[in-house]
Simulated scan of single mutants.
Amino acid sequence: MSKFLPIFRIIALLEGVSYILLLFIATPLKYFAKDPQYVKLLGMPHGLLFIAYVVMAILMSKDMKWNNQTLWIVLIASIIPFGTFYIDKKYLKTKNA
């Protein structure tokens, strides 16, 4: 088990939640209610979490000896809504965690 696993799981969860909030709540409010404050509020934290997710995925790939295909799946999941939740269930959740 990787020493980065608990940290990566938390970052993946937060990144996924921030993406869903940004995509399905803040963006519609910006365009339909003409209220951009939520996009401004969520944009920066989501961007930082996205960068942290990518960096941690690369570190995890070395620790867990993922092949390139697995790494690409984990990285691509970060741009698909609910993708990080799938990654947590499929690749990160262990029987001991």
Rank of each mutant, 00 (worst) to 15 (best):
T70R: 12
A12G: 09
L22R: 09
L13K: 04
L49H: 07
F24Q: 07
N67V: 01
A57V: 09
K3L: 04
K3C: 00
I79T: 13
K89L: 10
S18Q: 07
L21N: 08
M44H: 11
R9D: 04
N96P: 00
K89G: 06
D35E: 14
F50N: 09
H46K: 07
I73F: 06
G43K: 10
A12H: 05
K90F: 05
V55Y: 03
K3S: 13
P81N: 15
G16S: 12
G83L: 03
G47E: 09
K3D: 06
N67G: 15
P36D: 14
A77V: 05
Y91P: 01
L5H: 05
I87W: 01
L14Q: 04
P45D: 13
Y86W: 14
S18R: 04
A77C: 11
K62F: 07
V74F: 02
F4D: 11
V74Q: 01
M1H: 12
M44N: 11
I87N: 02
E15I: 04
A52H: 08
I20E: 02
R9M: 14
V74G: 00
G83F: 07
M1V: 15
Q69E: 13
P81C: 14
E15A: 15
M44I: 15
M44P: 03
S61M: 10
Q37F: 14
Y19S: 08
